[in-house]
């Protein structure tokens, strides 16, 4: 992921390429950013307000929209803490211990990134669906998984599993184990060591992973779409709600709800930049 750009000395650049090439490349880069990144954001806003403020407010405060917001927040509230716990545990055993199967474990953690979200949803249908391994049992006991909240949570957890661990493993490897060893040598117990040494040293990297994990958890579409059943007012998350509105040709309403998700993306990017800046310093401290 990106680290903060270093300020470049202008004088040397100017000798590097001819001004023409420089302007051409800069213009191209700006065009790419403008066309592919800025224009879509502007278009979301524009389309959302095409039918005016009133329509926008109606769409955003609609009963089903409110339910979708709550469901999305609730899903993230379950998935993000659980995946944070997983990420810390995985990073701790992989970055601090040598054991057979360690590299296999690292590969497995990355696996959800190479699996299509649709397949992520499909596998849970195979297990918990009506004809799945345990689906019948769960449904019979009044705890349906597929087309219900548990399925949405499982699918979301699958696609967001790697985020925290992937941030923490390289960070903790770079930091080394010496400070934790020192804490133990000075008599600290395991929890004490974790809260006073480990956690303060990884907090920015952890936050970075959590922010990315949260953005994906709230925005996941494919995996959730497969397991949710699109039941309005029941298993519809915000991204699914956008899809339904769009497919019903309620374009303005769809874009109005989409502004909420675009806002989430912008907040995510800003938070990420701030954390990146802080984390940069943590990496520098790791090597000192």
């Amino acid at each position: 992921m990106s680290r903060i750009l270093q300020p470049q000395t202008a004088s040397r650049e100017q000798k590097a390429e001819t001004p023409f090439v420089r302007y051409l490349l800069s213009l191209l880069a700006l065009a790419i950013i403008g066309l592919f990144l800025i224009l879509p954001l502007v278009a979301v806003l524009f389309e959302a307000f095409r039918e005016g403020w009133q329509a926008y407010l109606t769409a955003v405060t609609d009963r089903y929209t409110r339910h979708a917001i709550l469901l999305t927040l609730f899903t993230a509230l379950i998935c993000v803490p659980l995946n944070t716990l997983f990420g810390i545990a995985a990073a701790w055993c992989i970055a601090r211990f040598q054991f057979p199967g360690r590299s296999l474990l690292t590969t497995l953690i990355d696996l959800p990134f190479s699996v299509s979200p649709v397949i992520a949803g499909l596998v849970f249908i195979l297990i918990f669906g009506a004809q799945g391994w345990f689906g019948g049992w769960f449904a019979a006991n009044g705890f349906p998984v597929i087309f219900a909240l548990p399925g949405i949570v499982l699918a979301t957890m699958f696609v967001t599993l790697p985020f925290v661990a992937r941030e923490l493993i390289p960070l903790m490897q770079a930091q080394g184990a010496e400070q934790e060893e020192a804490a133990i040598m000075l008599g600290a117990g395991p929890w004490r060591m974790f809260w006073t040494i480990t956690l303060p040293r990884i907090k920015w990297g952890l936050l970075y992973g959590v922010i990315l994990c949260n953005a994906r958890a709230m925005g996941e579409f494919g995996a959730v779409s497969v397991v949710s059943g699109h039941i309005r007012g029941s298993t519809n998350t915000l991204p699914l709600h956008v899809e339904i509105l769009y497919n019903e040709y309620q374009f303005s309403a769809a874009f109005a709800v989409a502004t909420l998700l675009a806002g989430l993306a912008i907040v995510t990017l800003i938070a990420k930049s701030i954390v990146e800046w802080r984390q940069q310093r943590q990496w520098e401290n790791a090597s000192s």
Binding site: M218, G219, A265
Partner: peptide, 9 residues
């Protein structure tokens, strides 16, 4: 942005 923006949007 493409990482942060939900794909449906």
């Amino acid at each position: 942005l493409p990482f942060a923006l939900p794909t449906a949007v």
